[in-house]
Nucleic acid binder design. Structure first.
Lengths: 151, 151
DNA sequence: CGCGCTCCTGACCAAAGAGGTCAGGAAAGT
DNA sequence: ACTTTCCTGACCTCTTTGGTCAGGAGCGCG
C-alpha cells in the first residue's frame, strides 16, 4: 500500500517531459530538474520507453520525449509501467480471488480499493499535473483538511 | 500499490473473530477457517495484539478475541497494524514531501490517493464485512462493472 | 569517415521485505 | 503436574528496492 521511489521518480520525470516544449530532453537534465540519481533514472526511462510512454533518440541532440500528447497520458499509465498492476492482492488481481467463510465479502472491498485508486490515478493526466489543474473529483479529495493529517 | 499476504490474512482472521459469538477462538481454528499457515498467522495475531486490536489468553480454553466491538474496528485499523501507514511515498508521509519544478502538484495527487484509500478502508468495519453490508460509498464503487476488469 | 554524445543493456550489489518455518518458553486451566 | 495454547526470537529462502558500474550501439556533425 505504498508508492515506491521508482514510481515517484517516473511520474516526476514524465512531468518534466510533459512540460518540455518540443524537442528531446536529455536524461541528465531530467535528473537535475527532479534531483533523481541519473543512472537509476535512465533505467526507469527505459521501462517507460518499453511501455510505449516515452520515445528516445541517441547521440548529440538526442534525449527523451513523450510518445503521446501530455493530456493523453495518465499517472496510472506511468505507475503501471514501472510498478505493474495497481492494487493486486498477494500478487493476484482482486477479481480472481475467492474468499471463504466470513471473509467472503472481502473481495468486494479490494475491488473497491482498486476502483478508488483508479478514480484518482486514471483521471489525472500529465498535462493536469504540470498545469496544476487537477480534475474536480481529485482536487476535492485533496481539499479536505483531514486528508493532510497523518493517522 | 499492492496488498500483502500479511494484510490480507490479518483482515480475514479479524473477520473470523468478528463473526465468533463470545469466547476466545483458537489460532488453529482461525487458520483452518481461512486456510492460513498457522505459525505465520500467530505472528500476525501477535502484531494485532500489540496494536490493541485483539486480545488473547493462553492455555486450555484460551484463544483470541477482538478488543473492541466489531463495528468499531475498521479494515484500515487492521491493515495499519501489520503494514504500517497507508500510502506512504518513498517511506515518507505525502504531506511531508516537497516537490520541485513541474512536479509541484504531485503532492496533491498523492494526498488524494491516500484520501481515496481512506474513504474505503476507514469506512468498512469488520461488522460490515462479516454482515456483507458495505457502506454505500464503498458498495457503489464495487458495483461499477469496469471495477471488475483488469487493466 | 571518425568522433563525441547520448541512450541502451546487462551485471552486479547491499539492504530490506515477503512469506514463511522451527524451537523453546511462559501462562492458564484441570 | 501436565496439557494446552499463546508468545517470542531466531532463522530461512527468495524477491524487491534502490541503486552503481562497465561497456556497447546508434545518432549527428565536422
Amino acid at each position: 500500500m505504498r508508492v515506491s521511489a521508482k514510481a515517484d521518480y517516473a511520474v516526476r520525470a514524465a512531468a518534466e517531459l510533459a512540460a518540455a516544449e518540443e524537442g528531446p530532453v536529455k536524461g541528465e537534465k531530467l535528473a537535475e530538474a527532479q534531483d533523481i540519481p541519473l543512472q537509476f533514472l535512465e533505467h526507469i526511462l527505459l521501462e517507460l520507453k518499453h511501455a510505449g510512454i516515452v520515445r528516445a533518440r541517441r547521440g548529440a541532440k538526442g534525449g527523451y520525449w513523450l510518445a503521446r500528447p501530455a493530456d493523453e497520458v495518465t499517472i496510472a499509465d506511468v505507475v503501471r509501467a514501472v510498478e505493474g498492476p495497481i492494487a493486486h492482492v498477494q500478487s493476484a488481481p482482486p477479481e480472481s480471488i475467492e474468499y471463504r467463510g466470513n471473509a467472503e465479502h472481502l473481495q468486494e472491498v479490494w475491488i473497491a480499493v482498486r476502483a478508488s485508486l483508479r478514480t484518482v490515478l486514471e483521471h489525472v493526466t500529465l498535462a493536469d499535473l504540470v498545469g496544476g489543474q487537477l480534475p474536480s473529483e481529485v482536487s476535492a479529495l485533496a481539499a479536505q483538511p483531514d486528508a493532510w493529517v497523518a493517522r
